[in-house]
Amino acid sequence: MEYRTGSVGRVIAARFDHGEDFLAELRKIILTEKIESGWFQIIGAFAQAGVVTGPKEPVVPPDPVWRQVDAVCEVVGSGSVHLDNGEPKIHLHAALGDHGETLTACIRRNTKVYLTLELLLFELNGLGASRPWDEQGGFSKLRFK
């Protein structure tokens, strides 16, 4: 285990509207506001999302199981963002609900908002954190300077 202490900086509240690509718009906020590290919560709905539901086998590096969700689903999730060479690396896990059925997954791409989605982003200062690619692990791993 490795950890650092820091402090909460700015708090950003945002609304995303019907048809917007949530991940693309979140990246814009992070870059515009120069967020180096942060933690966020989301609540709302997706009409579409490309997700990973786990590895095919419990091996390192993992071979991800991809799933494309093309149905309206309620969403509640929690994630983090840390930069890697100035590029936001977003790690978001969420529960997606569709008519009583729930899928929990890592949200990765093609995130189209249905109606509205709300975000609360907490800037984290003083962590010296980044999320570079880890060749051995096969994923972007949280690191501290």
Rank of each mutant, 00 (worst) to 15 (best):
N125G: 03
L127D: 04
R10P: 02
G44H: 01
E57L: 15
I30Y: 01
A45R: 07
D70T: 15
A14S: 15
F46E: 02
N110G: 08
E25S: 11
P132S: 10
P58E: 04
R108K: 12
G86D: 10
I107S: 06
C73H: 01
L142P: 09
E25L: 12
A14R: 09
G54T: 14
Q48G: 12
L142Q: 05
V8N: 00
K89H: 04
F40E: 00
T32A: 12
L117W: 01
G126E: 09
F40C: 02
P58V: 13
P64D: 10
V76A: 10
V72D: 02
E118W: 09
L117D: 02
V60G: 13
V76W: 09
G138N: 07
R15A: 13
K34G: 12
T5Y: 08
G9L: 05
P58Y: 07
D21W: 02
N110F: 11
N110E: 12
V51L: 00
A13M: 13
R4F: 07
G138F: 08
G128E: 08
T102V: 15
K56M: 14
W66G: 13
V52M: 01
I42E: 00
T32I: 13
G44S: 11
P62H: 04
T111K: 05
V51Y: 02
V76G: 05
A45W: 01
A45L: 02
Q48W: 03
S78R: 08
G50V: 05
Q68P: 00
A14K: 09
P88A: 07
R108Y: 00
T32N: 14
F144I: 14
V113R: 06
V81I: 15
K34W: 06
Y3R: 11
L103G: 07
H18A: 13
E87A: 13
G54R: 07
N125M: 07
P64N: 07
Y114A: 15
A95Y: 03
E25W: 06
A14M: 11
L127A: 00
I30N: 05
F122W: 10
G19V: 14
N110W: 08
L119T: 05
A14Q: 08
R4N: 10
V81G: 01
P61K: 03
R143L: 15
T102Y: 05
A49H: 06
G50P: 04
L124Y: 07
V65A: 15
C73S: 11
H93E: 11
H18C: 14
I30L: 15
G126T: 15
T32C: 11
V8W: 03
G97A: 13
H18N: 14
L120T: 14
S37G: 03
T53Y: 04
R143F: 10
S80H: 07
A45S: 14
L117Q: 03
G100Y: 01
Y114W: 03
S140Q: 10
S78H: 08
P64G: 14
E101P: 05
K89E: 12
L121P: 01
G137Q: 10
T104Q: 00
S140D: 13
R109I: 03
I107P: 02
A105G: 09
V75E: 01
F40Q: 02
Q68F: 14
V69P: 04
C106V: 14
E2A: 14
G86A: 12
Q136K: 12
T102D: 03
H91Q: 10
P55H: 00
L120P: 02
R4P: 04
I30S: 04
G50H: 03
R143D: 07
L121E: 00
P62N: 08
